[in-house]
Amino acid sequence: MDLSKRRYVVVEGPIGAGKTSLARELALRFQADVLLEQPEDNPFLARFYEDRARYALPAQLTFLFQRVDQLRALTQLDLFRRPTVADFLFDKDPLFARLNLTDDEYALYDKIHAHLKPQVPSPDLVVYLQAPVPVLTERVHRRGVEYEQSMPESYLARVADAYTRYFYAYDDAPLLIVNSERLNFVDDPEHFELLTRRIAAMRGRREFFNLGQSA
């Protein structure tokens, strides 16, 4: 893959899909810059997982401002001068807001969002990592982030479903939909090479990648 032809690549997918690891590996391989979420800098996130109704709004607003700040920093740094791999789409924010906020809260969130008007460039490629909910659950448990351990499978299922619906309608960028169930991009060099070849060969607007499919 020649990442220089794709200046801005986004890895997306539900919690536990392996976004951050893959984004990091791609960046280290192709010497791209990274744009990574900073969940540990969100003081409301741990509390959100304990009491979702109560802390959804502050957690969501914190993420919104964090992303706006990141965008601003990028713009100042001459946006995407170097190829960049991100582990989130800016649209992720309203997606989670719709999922977790009450109607009144969402209306407020929406007003703030509209007011901030984040000017988001379209990626050159989105890699959407899918996996069945039990696989996501198992990965979340395995990575052992303390505040995530109380996350019920039903919540993961709703997140996964929201992503499915979001990407069903997605048409802002070429989309590679990856079934990551039997793929391990970090530990299996073959899986990683297969994926990078698949990305390099991608020509269409929407393609699928499963294990066993030739690159």
């Binding site: 990091r24 590996e25 280290l28 391989r29 192709f30 010497q31 970090v186 530990d187 060099p189 990683f192």
Partner: peptide
């Protein structure tokens, strides 16, 4: 920790 990392000008670390 970075099994697929490349070293600029030197190829793959692995």
């Amino acid at each position: 920790i970075a099994p697929h990392a490349a070293i600029p000008g030197r190829g793959l670390a692995s």
